[in-house]
Computed example of a mutant assay.
Amino acid sequence: MKNLKFYCSLVYHVCFCGCRSSSSRYSPLPWQGHFDEDKMVAIPDSDDIFHVYLAGTEGPVVFCLHGGGYTGLSFALIAGKMKEKVRVVAMDMRGHGQSKTSDDTDLSAETQCQDVLNVVSAMYGREPPAIILIGHSMGGAIAVRVAAKRALPTLAGLVVIDVVEGTAMASLVHMQRILANRQLHFPSVEKAIEWSVRGGGSLQNPESARISVPSTLKFDADRKCYVWLTALEESEAHWRGWYEGLSEVFLSCPVPKLLLLAGTDRLDRSLTIGQMQGKFQMIVVRHTGHAIQEDEPDEFAGVVLNFIARNRIGTYGIEIPGLRRPVSLRSSN
């Protein structure tokens, strides 16, 4: 009898406590403490309201655009590491997170570019502080196209995370299959976080996933399970417009530029030539997945802060020692 009780007790601890431990390992974490606050930004003369996260009170604005299927919380960990020196703003793009627009399915490059310009204008008016645009994947393509418009008078820098035209265009023919093969239904938020880290998702850092993944889900009351909030497979009509011609547009942007890659095989011919000519700075971050800002937040934050310091980007623009007023932000890199 004693042996039987011991065996039952052992089974209980291994099965029940082990499952509970696994669940707690992937339980959601709050974004508070990384970002300082969030708010809704209403766009005048429209029904569009964009949700943004904010951190920091001083320095230039690091304005972050997430990739397709992600949200502004993709930048939570880096916000906490950078907010003592810069202000970090991360918006939920159209059709993502808590943002609500008149047409959440219109993810065209032109519409998303206008969304970014509208949010910056609504937040800062006609005299915004110096802005460094950061974009990951789809958000990187949008950041490049916003910069190329030269519509932000205080744009001081551009950082693109793991997206180049050649690789992106080549992958489009496989994208629907990739999306169809990912897990679509989860019994709990914890299981979605675990899948994102271990089961085929794009994240490697459990801490970041525990913050960012819950914001990418919604509960399906009919199926009684969690599903992805953004139906990326329905945005196929816009994919080519995000990436086509992106390399040349990136090279033409008249501000200091940084390209962060998770592997050198992602560099296409135009960017290889441009990098050799010194038209932009490139850094390859090893031992990371596609979402560099989530997988390696310490290294990412250090690289971006060094980029800002190297290009002497201050609160109101590019500050050169000895000059009372910042030089024009229209000058080429």
Score class of each variant (00 low, 15 high):
107 L>R: 04
107 L>D: 01
107 L>K: 10
109 A>M: 06
109 A>T: 08
110 E>V: 15
110 E>I: 08
110 E>K: 12
111 T>Y: 02
111 T>K: 15
111 T>L: 04
111 T>S: 06
112 Q>A: 03
112 Q>S: 10
112 Q>K: 03
112 Q>V: 06
112 Q>L: 11
112 Q>P: 08
113 C>P: 02
113 C>W: 11
113 C>R: 11
114 Q>H: 13
114 Q>F: 12
114 Q>E: 15
115 D>P: 09
116 V>G: 00
116 V>P: 01
116 V>H: 00
117 L>E: 09
117 L>D: 03
117 L>Y: 12
117 L>F: 13
117 L>A: 04
119 V>Q: 00
119 V>M: 05
120 V>Y: 05
121 S>D: 09
121 S>R: 15
121 S>H: 10
121 S>Q: 13
122 A>Y: 09
122 A>V: 12
122 A>T: 10
123 M>G: 03
123 M>P: 10
124 Y>T: 00
124 Y>D: 06
124 Y>A: 02
124 Y>F: 13
125 G>P: 07
125 G>H: 11
126 R>G: 07
126 R>L: 07
126 R>C: 03
127 E>R: 06
127 E>V: 12
128 P>M: 08
128 P>T: 02
128 P>I: 04
129 P>W: 02
129 P>F: 01
130 A>Y: 02
130 A>H: 01
130 A>F: 09
130 A>E: 00
130 A>C: 00
130 A>W: 02
131 I>N: 07
131 I>F: 01
131 I>T: 06
132 I>K: 09
132 I>F: 05
132 I>Y: 12
132 I>R: 14
132 I>M: 08
133 L>M: 11
133 L>V: 07
134 I>R: 09
134 I>V: 15
134 I>M: 13
134 I>N: 03
136 H>L: 14
136 H>S: 11
136 H>G: 02
137 S>L: 03
137 S>E: 08
138 M>W: 06
138 M>Q: 14
138 M>I: 03
139 G>P: 13
139 G>M: 07
139 G>V: 13
140 G>Q: 04
140 G>Y: 11
141 A>H: 10
141 A>L: 07
141 A>G: 12
142 I>K: 02
143 A>C: 10
145 R>M: 14
145 R>P: 05
145 R>L: 13
145 R>E: 13
145 R>H: 12
146 V>M: 09
147 A>W: 14
148 A>R: 13
148 A>I: 14
